[in-house]
Amino acid sequence: MAHDNPATTDAESRNARGGLPGAHAQRGVLPFPVFLRRAFGERWLPYWLVLPMLALLFSVTVFPFLWNVWVSLQDLRSTNILRGAPFVGLRNYWQLLHDPLFYHSLKVSLYFVVGSIVGQFTLGLLIALIFHRRPGAARLLRPVFIVPWILSAIIIGYSWIWMYDYNFGLINAGLRALGLPPVRWLNDVTMAIWALVIANIWRGTPFTMLFLEAALKNIPDELYEAAQVDGATGWQAFRHVTLPLLRPAVAINLILVTMWTFNLFDTILVMTQGGPANATLTTAMYMYNNAFKYGLFGYGAAITLVMLLINAALALLYLRTVGRATTT
């Protein structure tokens, strides 16, 4: 399957010829000019080419990440940051396991992630299937549908705060027009998380739509023709041809969307800051609070690393279940 391992594409085999054998560094002291020629020669060229990218990524991503691991082992907080923090080993992690608010935040994240994914995936798949069948509609509407996905979190957040406004928001205006009582969307302890989920579905659906549409394009038409010859109905073709072939792409899509949604906190920071009464305190938001509201940098770092572990576990789970290419 082409999607199975995205890191190796067919281009790899195509380019095997143009490539170079593995660079075997020769031991021993080389005469200076030879060393220079070697260093800038064909053999080392790819390394020079990737060097700027690697150097940048190392300094702003890998190094901070490793530092984060180190910080998570210290009791680093705003009150000792200028003096130096004590090393506490795994105490931050141990405390996290006994932190009721952390478990509360996991529960809120679960609602947020599941709600968002169910909405985004259902809508995204539906639109992708429609677009795949009707290129005319796709050409016209695709640019419109992706608008939410390319807006900033600030703009998305305030747009929805304005939509949800109790007095002047469009949603309550609609409810009042229908004779229904208005709702305090973002200030209601049960409603707030779903209000965030709706805003997030609005924001994230375009990605799933594009992703699945691209995956659908990769399914050869011959398979459908064959299915039609066999007398399959539209639904049967979908069930037995499209769905199994879409599976790997669905797995990757779910992994990406789950991670993004679990890690997401920018719109929550803008819209509710975790309130009311912690009703929208997701794990990512709780991490932000610990680091930047309570000044507990070490504890915050530990939360991010636990989040990363949860992400990795979820990714594995998806690959094992949804991602299996075998059809049942």
């Binding site: 705003s78 000792n80 200028l82 000044g295």
Partner: peptide, 8 residues
């Protein structure tokens, strides 16, 4: 307290 302890 927080700001003083932090040396700010």
């Amino acid at each position: 307290g927080e700001f003083v302890e932090g040396g700010f």
